[in-house]
Simulated assay, not measured.
Amino acid sequence: MILATDQHPDGRGLSPVALQFIALRDAVMDRWEREVRARVEGAGDLLAPVLTNTLPAFLDNIAEALSPDHPRRHGASGTTSPSAHGDERARMTPFGPDQVIHEYQILREAIATETKGRIALDEAHWTIIDRSINAATREAIRTFTRIHDDLRRKVAAALSHDMRTPLAVIDYGAQVISLAPDLDVARRTASRIEENSARLKTMMSDLLDALTFQGAAKMPLRLTRFDVRDLVGELCEQYGQGAGRHIRFEADSDSVVGFWCRDALRRSVENLVNNAIKYGNGGTIRIAAHATRGRLMLSVHNDGNPIPEDRHDRIFDYLHREGGVAAGDGWGVGLPFVKAVADSHGGSVSVDSGPDTGTTFLIDVPVDSRPFVDGAPRPAAAGQSA
C-alpha cells in the first residue's frame, strides 16, 4: 500500500528502488521509534500514534522522489506534511526544536541502517534522501516555532486580561483620593493615576484585540466507535447521486474501526469534496481511507489545476480566501474547519498538490482518538474490551 501524501494507490511511476524502499517502510519506522524513545528527551512516554505522526507518508514521499519518472523533486516538495509534523509536535509533545531536529537525524540513521545491503542506493539516491530530510526539518521547525510563538502571545494576552483587575483597583483608589478635602497634592497625583490607568486599559484592550486568535480552542467532539469504510461509502453514494453526470466518485477504503466524531469527520470530508467539485477538472474524485501504525489516513483527491505551493499553508488560515485560479468566492471557512477537526482529534491535515499529481487533502489522525479528546472515555486497559 502506497501511503504517500498524494494518495495514489497504484504506485504510478515508481522505480524498482522506490518499491523496495516502500517495502522497508515499517522496518525503518520500527527502528526509528525504538531509537527515538531511547535517545530523544520526552519521547519515551508518548503514545505510539502521536510519536508516529506523519512520518510513514513522508517515507513514501521520499520513495516517489527516488523514482526518475515521478514528478516529486524530494520528499517534502508539493506537500504540507512536514509542516503538519511540526504543528503536531508543538501541540501534543514536550519537544523543543532540538528534539524535532534530532528525530529527523535519527530517521536518516534508520534509513541508512535498514537499507544497507537490501537496496542499492547510489550517491544520487542519497542526495535526494538528504535533501528530503533537510527540507522537512526546516518546514517542521518553521511551523513548530510559529505555533510556540502563537502560544506565547496567547499567554501574554491572558496575563494582560488578568491585569485588568488591579488596574480597576488603581482607578477606584484614584477616585477616592480625588475626593479627599484640601489635599491638593493628592488630587494632582490622583489625576495622573487616572490618566495613566485609562491609558494602560486602552493599551491592554488593543493588545487583546491584536493577540486574540479565532478558533484556537479545541472543538467539542462526541466520539463513537465505527468503521470509516461505511462513512466513505455513504459519502460516495451521496455525492454520486447529485454531483453531476461528468464527475465520477471512487471509494478506496480499508475497513478501519476506530473512535472518532462521526459528524465532524463527515462534515470535514464534505468540505473537501465540495472543494474538489468546485476546483477540480470535473473528472474523478477519490475518497480514500487506510490505516498504518495506529493512524487513520483519510483523504480526498481530485485532478485539475494545482494549488500554488506558496499558498499551501495559508489556505488553512481562518477566513483566508485565495484569489488565484478559479477562486470564485474562495476557500472560506471550510479548510480551517477541517484543520480544527483534525487538530481536535489529536492529528493534523495536510495538502499535496502539483500539476502532475493533482490535489490531495489528507486528514491524518489517531485510529483511537479517545486519549486526545477532553472528556472522552479513556481506552480500556490491556486485556479488557474497548
Score class of each variant (00 low, 15 high):
residue 115 T to D: 07
residue 73 R to C: 03
residue 72 R to Q: 12
residue 91 R to Q: 05
residue 66 L to R: 03
residue 75 G to C: 11
residue 125 H to N: 14
residue 92 M to T: 08
residue 123 E to N: 00
residue 54 T to V: 15
residue 76 A to L: 04
residue 115 T to S: 14
residue 136 A to H: 07
residue 111 I to L: 06
residue 80 T to A: 12
residue 72 R to E: 13
residue 65 A to I: 13
residue 134 N to V: 14
residue 133 I to V: 15
residue 66 L to G: 08
residue 128 I to L: 04
residue 85 H to D: 13
residue 58 F to Q: 04
residue 116 K to E: 15
residue 112 A to M: 14
residue 75 G to M: 11
residue 103 E to R: 00
residue 136 A to M: 02
residue 84 A to E: 05
residue 114 E to W: 07
residue 37 R to H: 12
residue 113 T to H: 10
residue 60 D to A: 13
residue 78 G to I: 03
residue 52 T to Y: 06
residue 50 V to C: 06
residue 62 I to Q: 07
residue 57 A to D: 14
residue 45 D to L: 07
residue 129 I to A: 06
residue 41 E to Q: 09
residue 91 R to E: 05
residue 92 M to G: 06
residue 116 K to N: 13
residue 140 A to I: 09
residue 39 R to N: 08
residue 84 A to S: 13
residue 55 L to Q: 08
residue 138 R to A: 10
residue 39 R to Q: 14
residue 43 A to Q: 02
residue 55 L to M: 14
residue 76 A to R: 08
residue 106 I to C: 09
residue 99 Q to Y: 05
residue 71 P to Y: 10
residue 42 G to M: 01
residue 43 A to F: 03
residue 48 A to V: 15
residue 120 A to L: 12
residue 92 M to D: 00
residue 130 D to S: 11
residue 114 E to K: 01
residue 133 I to C: 02
residue 96 G to S: 06
residue 110 A to D: 11
residue 35 E to M: 11
residue 67 S to I: 10
residue 89 R to Y: 04
residue 107 L to N: 05
residue 48 A to E: 14
residue 133 I to Y: 02
residue 102 H to M: 03
residue 86 G to P: 11
residue 99 Q to N: 00
residue 121 L to H: 10
residue 112 A to T: 15
residue 38 A to I: 01
residue 99 Q to M: 01
residue 73 R to L: 13
residue 41 E to N: 07
residue 83 S to A: 13
residue 138 R to E: 08
residue 103 E to D: 02
residue 61 N to D: 15
residue 65 A to H: 08
residue 40 V to Y: 05
residue 140 A to H: 06
residue 135 A to P: 12
residue 74 H to W: 10
residue 40 V to L: 06
residue 96 G to R: 05
residue 131 R to P: 04
residue 35 E to A: 01
residue 91 R to G: 04
residue 138 R to H: 10
residue 47 L to P: 12
residue 118 R to G: 02
residue 94 P to F: 05
residue 125 H to K: 04
residue 63 A to L: 12
residue 54 T to R: 01
residue 63 A to Q: 04
residue 136 A to W: 01
residue 57 A to M: 15
residue 83 S to V: 12
residue 62 I to V: 15
residue 135 A to H: 01
residue 46 L to H: 00
residue 131 R to G: 08
residue 81 S to V: 01
residue 60 D to I: 10
residue 120 A to C: 08
residue 68 P to T: 13
residue 85 H to M: 09
residue 116 K to R: 09
residue 110 A to H: 07
residue 130 D to G: 11
residue 140 A to Q: 04
residue 79 T to S: 15
residue 76 A to F: 01
residue 94 P to C: 01
residue 64 E to F: 07
residue 64 E to R: 12
residue 124 A to N: 10
residue 36 V to L: 03
residue 80 T to W: 03
residue 82 P to F: 13
residue 67 S to R: 01
